[in-house]
């Protein structure tokens, strides 16, 4: 969710504008797309832990380690480059002539950007699906920063790991099926959105 909120605008901005340092940012983003999630988990762990730079602040705005908040931070960092990268690619694939023609029809800068994003909507939805796919299947980072605490920070993927270790294969398989089901339903919903986008 958060990755979408941040990733789509950033990706669009990177696709639409040219500025100093843009290439460097894009290079960082591509690196982020292939970054092992567990390393990001480690990074967030170290930042948030009691002796880490952010943990020491004891600020109410910064979630403590082993809380859902910490997991959201890790997941956001994991999905953000995926969402931004795919959004950028989608926006850049829109005919550059379109921007000028839209401007010529009297669009403001924001209206122009919005029009280009809606023209790239199929790619933008793919970006969101990729981001979602990246985090729903994620195990290592959420286990590190969440701690897999029952009823609090245990999610389907970490529960599967635990049940498999305990030898409860039936339960693990059942959980796996539920995870697959949820992923399928959400992707189907997004595809429907995409289909609508194509039709209207």
């Amino acid at each position: 969710m958060f990755s979408t909120l941040i990733g789509v605008p950033v990706g669009a901005a990177l696709g639409l504008t040219r500025f100093m340092g843009r290439k460097l940012l894009v290079a960082f983003m591509y690196t982020g797309m292939g970054f092992p999630p567990v390393v990001i988990g480690l990074f967030v762990y170290l930042m948030l832990s009691r002796s880490g730079p952010l943990g020491q602040l004891n600020s109410p705005l910064i979630p403590a380690l082993f809380t859902p908040g910490a997991m959201i931070i890790a997941q956001t960092i994991i999905a953000f480059p995926l969402v931004a990268g795919f959004t950028m690619a989608a926006v850049m694939s829109v005919d550059p002539q379109l921007r000028q023609q839209v401007q010529s029809l009297g669009a403001t800068t924001w209206q122009t950007a919005w029009t280009v994003i809606t023209e790239a909507r199929i790619g933008v939805i793919v970006a969101v699906i990729a981001g979602f796919g990246g985090i729903i299947s994620e195990v290592g980072a959420v286990m590190l920063v969440g701690g897999n605490i029952e009823g609090r920070t245990r999610v389907l993927t970490t529960a599967i790991v635990l049940e498999t270790r305990k030898g409860n294969f039936e339960l693990a398989i059942a959980l796996g099926l539920i995870l697959l089901g949820i992923t399928f339903v959400i992707n189907a919903l997004m595809l429907r959105l995409q289909g609508k986008a194509i039709d209207t």
Partner: peptide, 16 residues
Amino acid sequence: RRQVTTVSQRPVLLNR
């Protein structure tokens, strides 16, 4: 700006 508009050689229409 909105008093003037252009029709180009290669029109790009919106996918709508």
